[in-house]
Design a protein around this nucleic acid. Sequence first.
DNA 1: GAGCACTGC
Length: 722
Amino acid sequence: MAQGGLRNSTDNRHKLSAKFTIDDRKVDPAFSRKQKIAEHRKSLPIASVEKRLADEVRNNDTLIIVGETGSGKTTQLPQFLFNAGFCRDGKTIGITQPRRVAAVTVAKRVAEECGVELGQRVGYSIRFEDVTSGSTRIKYMTDGLLLREALLDPYLSRYSVIIVDEAHERTVHTDVLLGLLKNVQKARSKSFNDCLNIEKKKENNGTLSDKDNGIFLKQCQGRKFPPLKLIIMSASLDARGFSEYFGGARAVHIQGRQFPVDIFYTHHAEPDYVDATLVTILQIHLEERPGDILVFLTGQEEIESVERLVKERLQQLPEGSRKLLTAPIFSALPSEKQMRVFAAAPAGFRKVILATNIAETSVTIPGIRYVIDPGFVKARSYDPVKGMESLIIVPTSKAQALQRSGRAGREGPGKCFRLYPESEFEKLEDSTKPEIKRCNLANVILQLKALGVNDILGFDFMEKPSRASIVKSLEQLFLLGALTDECKLSDPVGHQMAQLPLDPIYSRALILASQFNCLEEMLITVAMLSVESIFYAPREKLEEARTAMKCFSCPEGDHLTLVNVYRASNEFLEKRTVGLSKEKNEKILRKWCKENFINSRSLRHARDVHSQIRGNVEQMGLRLASCGDDMLQFCRCLAASFFLNAALKQPEGTYRALASGQVVHIHPSSVLFQAKPECIVFNELVQTNHKYIRNITKIDYLCLWVGLIDFRFTLGEKRIEN
DNA sequence: GAGCACTGC
């Protein structure tokens, strides 16, 4: 099997692959591809420790693996465990990823390496897409999806091993999952030991006490669960936190394969990092050897302004030095435009990619040799007292700076220019604050309650959110009717809300809408509110975009405007695409979106969410009716669901949010930006330059009270039932 | 007068 011996060093890898490239011409391409894959697998740093790793997993119920970039841990470890017999008895190895793309691409790669069809032995499962079957033994999935699975199968009984990958990113889902897995692991070992004891007793004297029987039935339901093996994989060098959390679990380190990256710092702090960025881009372009540049900026506005400035400065250079192309990338950019960053620059040209932190982890761009890191990031934080989120620009952490510089060493040696002095680097936080400590917890709490965790304040989080934050979210859930006076999930409202993959306030709106006879409209509304920016207005076509938006705009506000967009897209599809293939359909819809300045990725996502949620509410038996032209009915329902987000106009034209008393401004993207009605409900409050409220609908002041009374009535009803 | 990045049976 190991022909030519196992070689790990980078040099050998290059020699081997070069040799096989030449041989390709003579042999069957499929065969040579197989050979190449086999050689690649053997060359990975992790390959030489296959047996050791399998032993470690066999001997430790929990294992922390620190694997540097390029170690091959994500693709190889599940295969090693499969080969070592961890899937006997039809059990599955589950690997979670924070992002959908990663789950899909890794699963495809591993299926190919195993030489099996995707969805058979190797598969993936993400929202809207399940490519697994009864024979799937290696299953890649998003961490959010595994959390949802736990609602149905609290012991996660089909899994023998669960691998939590990219745990260092510390997303909310990862953190909740870690706490949950810790409990599942405990419960499964207990059930296993109890079963063993009971079986021993049976063998010895054939009698069982009632207590034993109770445990046997309750915990094992007639079968014993084998202990759950847990593997936490992280790319951060510090495994201590994970190890301590899992009771001093063993940690192993796997070397990576990265090319060296030289780090440069400035001598002094830069007063204007945008200007410093500009100077550095041009300096690299004029003085360094060929290779593309990746620049990390904080947001769309900054990216667009740097792009403009680069173009201006280039005009001042001699003609021969102007061969520099800019390519922006950020999440809200339509996919067609995002694709431009992946296209190679024409011969003689250098490409400079201006990116948000989307390029830190989510997308990998080939050809990068230089990274410019001004050292800032736009981050979300949450103030539980004000109930307000904010998006503010803050310095990166050390780990983030490291991740960014690593982007220059994917294909060869690179350089990273940090636009701050080395002394400043030392002052940075080691790692970014986990998301769970800076977001609204209503959703997390609802999920935990549904999983049977009643004492949220006592839940064993790796890093516990503040008491204030937990209490605020409990209060919000109570006000929405999801929790009873005893802080238990209410029946049926709380259980229904937990079942819906939506923000609790949206779930509540859907349940109310079935009583207001406008569930059809509310379904569309929450689907559209659940996705990122439906409208896309590039700076250079702002006027055109505004005109396009007017066609959909509804005087009542943004919610019904979104409904109009959704319905218009539906009508368009029904008229134009009868009998066309799915691909043609997609294409023609993308064209329609472009003409109407709508982000087709967002609309597509909203359509997926809509069809999923419609299935959910139908299953719950909610009444799917339309209010037709009776806008008042819809607005009353909005008022009743979003009463926590009501605001009143003040004499100066600003608004006061009723729940928190804060002064807020209508976001300029709202159709009501100029109309300024007296009484409104809003979808979200986010502080950027101002405290902005987004997605707003005008309501009658009376509606708000009627809504509140309706709400109290239903709450009262619920109490009586309880 | 303006939108970091992810995710959900």
